[in-house]
Amino acid sequence: MSLIPATILTGFLGSGKTTLLKRVLSEQHGQKIAVIENEFGEENIDNDILVSESKEQIVQMSNGCICCTIREDLREALQLLAAKKRKGLLDFDRVVIETTGLADPGPVAQTFFMDEEIAESFLLDSILTLVDAKHAAQQLNDRQEARRQVGFADQIFISKADLVSGEELDALQHRLKHMNPRAPQQVVHFGEVPIANVLDLRGFNLNAKLDIDPDFLKEDEHDHDHHDHEHGEHCNHPSHQHDHDHDHDHDHGHEHGQGHHHHHDDDVKSFVFRTRKPLDPAKLEDFLGAIVNIYGPRMLRYKGVLDMKGTNRKVIFQGVHQLMGSDLGPEWAEGEERVSKMVFIGIDLPRDILLQGLAQCEA
């Protein structure tokens, strides 16, 4: 039996996760989706979505989707669903796990890698994070959980953008980009997202693409020529707390469409390492192993496409917290520039130690 794809849906309280889910569940897309409400004893989401008030955990819905509410272990719920599917008691194609507003998606993601039984039945497709534009500034300032959710995302959906000004939206998108340059951002209205933008995003695929907006990297290049290390960290203003009461007049940052003066000094940050020299596999493995050992809990997502000594194929690696995986990708094309690129997203990671250590892994 092929693996069942799973999507983790996370996001700020009030960001519209339920609206998005309802849409995904009620749309006639011909897919049978099992939704797991992972809600740790909070109030149930709108009961009209759950159709019946019965005590049964799993509720079948009119278009063939099913919804199950768990208050205990996610592992057990996943195993139960997989077992019922195997026995032909339930028919579904994929799973969407909705976490509570302030849940950390990390442990949920790790379940799919660490637990052999789960890994035999399910494949983690991606982590989606919904951000409420109206309350984002406040939530990102006040709650580390909200910042972590942004750092984990493979795809960010921004809701309620119509309630803020263009400048505020621009500043928010800039801020999110610094925290997580890997995740594309999409502004959505009332959960109206085409299903293709939600499912099968392959965020955890070890593919040879590392989608970091090249302009995001270029902004820094004029300041830092040393050793071709670029990173996504800008002016170190103290955090502009609580919304944007600072004046919008000094427009110097907007000459090339960048609102530098909105930069918040968030603890969730990203930076990028690039080198044109091949890397030594043994050195790199030792260094990354040591880093993950020490900083793993603070490392949210990291990914690299690398030029390794001794192989003509790209080496692709990625990780979540302490869990790392790597794979051989396609061959470097003829005439393609062999550049190793890595992006790290984490909480107060020691950028200099990482960049220096990686530079020492050059062959």
Rank of each mutant, 00 (worst) to 15 (best):
A136F: 06
L130W: 04
Q173M: 14
D170E: 15
A119G: 12
N197A: 13
R202W: 03
E167N: 12
F190N: 15
E120H: 12
H189L: 13
H135R: 07
R147W: 05
S126R: 04
K160R: 07
L172E: 08
A153I: 04
I195G: 01
A119S: 12
D142A: 14
R202I: 00
H178T: 15
F204C: 08
L172C: 09
E116A: 12
L123F: 09
K160F: 10
F113T: 07
D115H: 05
E117H: 13
A136I: 06
L130T: 13
F122P: 02
R148L: 12
E117S: 07
H135A: 07
R148W: 07
L140C: 05
Q138R: 15
L140W: 08
D132P: 02
Q138Y: 11
N205L: 13
L176Q: 09
H135M: 08
N180G: 02
T129F: 01
L176D: 07
E120N: 09
I156A: 08
P181H: 06
P184Y: 07
A137T: 01
A196E: 15
F113M: 10
K177S: 13
G166T: 15
G166H: 14
A133T: 04
K209M: 10
V187I: 15
K177A: 15
E117M: 08
A183I: 01
G191H: 03
L199P: 00
I127C: 03
A161R: 04
L206V: 02
V150Y: 05
S121V: 08
L123A: 09
L128H: 00
L163M: 11
L206C: 14
K209I: 10
V188R: 00
P194A: 14
P181G: 07
R202T: 07
K160P: 00
N197I: 02
A161W: 05
R175M: 02
L128P: 00
K134W: 06
K209F: 11
L124D: 06
R147C: 11
A183S: 05
A137D: 14
V187G: 03
D125Q: 07
I195W: 05
V187A: 11
F190W: 09
R148Q: 13
G203K: 00
F122Y: 15
